[in-house]
Nucleic acid binder design. Structure first.
Lengths: 255, 255
DNA sequence: CGATCATGTTACGGTCATCGTTACATTCCA
DNA sequence: TGGAATGTAACGATGACCGTAACATGATCG
């Protein structure tokens, strides 16, 4: 039935796989109904019903009286435990906060996940106008300063990570492979990446790589700010602060 | 084989159930090994291996190079999404923080889950000596101020929620049913509960119920502080502030 | 106000995914 | 160096799980 869920050689558990699909779908679409979920992931309703019931019993999801589903308390508990168990996040959090307080702008930690950049930690300052950020939000790798994540990859890996069609977000988005590769080369040499309105017109974002012991990139720290209050001098300052933060994270990880 | 996992009537998915067991076990025991997990939940190693591999592929767990398992990035993403989807937690968080800032002590939100009290939200002040708190931590219902959660239950539900043997933690722990029921009556009449060293000798904890639209108790807010700096006058102040916070949470939930 | 659709749910029998067994390779201690 | 633990692979038997079909309920139409 589900034809495209190829498992190659190593054996896994199909039901668990579908169950994760369900969980992620509920996470993405709060207050979704059984039929929506079944449609979204292409399974039958009885199957999804059984899964939801199993998860509801364990508090992973909650069913409202109107029949819609949300994540439940157990998911909160799991997530909290996870933030203390994932070294990268545990180490980065206080550093992101300190950095964000200092510049009074939003800071993020992003990794490559499934060909996209994924936000796994963040800090937002308490000022009225600030860049909104959300853990779990995904962005393409070719646009914005997160492209530092690409810049240090081995050439062939990098090549296969870049899709043929580069989606355009603004007039400044890089949409050809050639220009992207040239930009990546520049980023690699500079050790940082500045994006001015590549993803969203009024936003500036500055990223710096977090290096593993072997020099490979495991994450990117970045500062995101509204363009109107971000001068070139600010950007220079941000770069220096980001490099410092990235170094601290690397050290915190024991390297 | 697993004889005691009775499903009554409604049908669920056994593999998913075991998978949740695995997840919770990894959450509780970071850096556990395959054999530990299999032993803890009483399943065979190959089965657990298949589950872990499935979850690892999806980022729910991570396997370290030394072969130990931890929760992974996807768990963080799920948990973050859950905190925004569970109304109670979303509403309570800023209120807990405001309250905690004001009294400069630790605040918590607890619910009844599986016959225990479960912390699902918290705030800790930034002072050197403070009560430590952790989301996901469970405590028995009979000791400490969390017993407000019991106080408003229908008598027969309350009765079956109280175990026959009440574990003793300190000299002040209530360990007989009769005394506990008398105390619960008093709590119900007062509308709050103060625990002085019932769970831990040097701690004072004050709890107040969060009421649903129908007057039933859905959670408890509490302030926990070291006994030496908590005078009777502080406690009176805490009670008033907690009642205010509890009311705000109830209202925030739309009641 | 029926008709039509979409929903959630139950029942059930067939089948294939899943499971445990067995076996093996590796690592870790003693 | 051996014995015990580990993680992993292969495989065949079986029963858990799946999909189909059918139904109840409630919307949303005309």
């Amino acid at each position: 039935m589900n034809d495209e869920r190829k498992q190659e050689k190593i054996s896994t558990v199909q039901s668990v796989d579908v169950c994760i699909d369900v969980l992620l779908d509920v996470a993405k679409n709060p207050d979704c109904r059984l039929a929506d979920i079944a449609r979204n992931i292409g399974e039958t309703k009885p199957r999804i019903l059984r899964m939801l019931r199993t998860m509801e019993r364990r508090g992973l999801v909650r069913k409202s009286s109107s029949g819609t589903y949300r994540l439940g308390n157990t998911a909160i508990v799991l997530g909290t435990a996870a933030s203390t168990q994932v070294d990268l996040v545990r180490i980065a959090n206080p550093i992101l906060e300190e950095l964000g307080q200092k510049v009074n702008e939003t800071t993020q930690l992003r990794i490559i996940d499934n060909g996209e950049s994924l936000c796994i930690a963040k800090f937002e300052p308490t000022r009225d106008l600030r860049v909104h950020s959300m853990i779990g939000r995904r962005r393409p790798l070719h646009a914005g300063s997160y492209k530092v994540l690409l810049a240090y990859l081995p050439p062939q890996v990098q090549a296969q990570m870049i899709p043929d069609k580069l989606e355009r977000f603004t007039a400044r988005t890089i949409t050809t492979r050639a220009r992207l590769e040239a930009e990546l080369k520049r980023v690699r040499e500079a050790g940082h990446c500045v994006s001015r309105g590549e993803v969203s017109d009024q936003l500036v974002s500055v990223s710096v790589p977090v290096l593993a012991f072997d020099g490979s990139v495991i994450a990117a720290v970045n500062i995101a700010a509204p363009a109107f209050r971000t001068q070139d001098s600010d950007i220079q300052r941000y770069i220096a602060l980001l490099k410092n933060a990235a170094r601290k994270i690397s050290e915190g990880l024991g390297w």
